[in-house]
Amino acid sequence: MGPGEIAVGWAGRDDAHEVSGVLAEGAAWMARKGWPGWTAADIAPAFVAARIAACEMAAARLDGVVAGVCTLTRSDPEFWPDDAPGEAAYLHRLAVRRRFAGARVTPAIVAWCAQTARDWGCRALKLDCHPHISGIYLRLGFTRLDSWTTHPSDRSPYLVDRFVMAL
């Protein structure tokens, strides 16, 4: 990989510290905006290590550093409870280091997730996000499906926009 090229793939055990750092930057950014974000447990090293071990944590590398991360899973009963198994892949916790924000990292992560979902035989890539960042996903080819209030067991209910990308 040459200078300026973005490589996206599954994160490895050695990436756990950097991945946690990217998620912490994302959580701090959301907090500064006043948006409901991830809990400490959502970005804790134990969460990251478990997602890496399950091959559900992806990392985008740019110029030798982890520039962005996300989880990609085959089910999401919390936000997509009515989906049939194998119908879609689910992108969550997409975060980009602030110094790479607005660059090519997010599109590269989404493209990799879409291709991985296709490789799994899924017909769609789905995600949910805070309504204020919906425009990012519309520009990347997602279609807004609806607004939905989630009722997690560990925090107050909150509103998300749900998106789908046909594959």
Rank of each mutant, 00 (worst) to 15 (best):
A103M: 12
L94P: 08
P107E: 01
D154G: 08
T149E: 14
W148A: 05
W120H: 10
H130F: 05
A101N: 04
V96I: 12
G141T: 01
P131I: 13
L138N: 13
V96K: 14
T116A: 14
F100V: 08
F142N: 02
I133G: 07
I109T: 02
S153H: 15
R155E: 03
A124S: 00
D146R: 14
H132V: 03
G102A: 05
Q115N: 14
L94N: 12
D154H: 14
C122V: 02
R97S: 08
R144T: 04
I109C: 00
G135V: 08
L91G: 10
R93A: 09
D128E: 14
L140V: 04
T106A: 10
R99D: 12
S134C: 11
I109D: 00
A101G: 13
C122I: 01
L125H: 00
Q115C: 07
D154P: 05
R104M: 09
K126T: 00
G135F: 10
P152K: 02
T150C: 06
V96Y: 14
D146F: 09
A111S: 08
R118D: 06
S153P: 08
H132C: 04
W112E: 09
T150E: 05
R123S: 07
S153F: 13
C129T: 14
S153K: 14
V105G: 03
R118E: 07
D146L: 12
K126P: 04
V110D: 03
A114S: 11
Y137T: 08
P107A: 02
G135L: 07
L125Q: 00
L140P: 01
R139P: 08
R97W: 02
R118I: 04
L127Q: 03
G135Q: 06
G121H: 03
L125C: 00
L94T: 11
Q115G: 06
L138P: 06
H132E: 11
C129F: 06
F142I: 02
A101P: 04
I133H: 07
Q115W: 08
R118F: 04
W112R: 09
A111C: 05
F100Y: 15
L140T: 04
C129A: 10
F100L: 06
T149G: 09
I133M: 10
G102T: 09
T116L: 08
G135R: 10
A114L: 11
T143A: 07
R99T: 13
T150L: 07
A117D: 15
G121D: 02
A95C: 11
I109P: 00
P131F: 15
A117N: 15
A108E: 12
G121F: 01
R99W: 06
V110A: 02
A114R: 12
L140H: 05
L145W: 12
C129L: 05
C113Q: 15
A117H: 12
T143I: 04
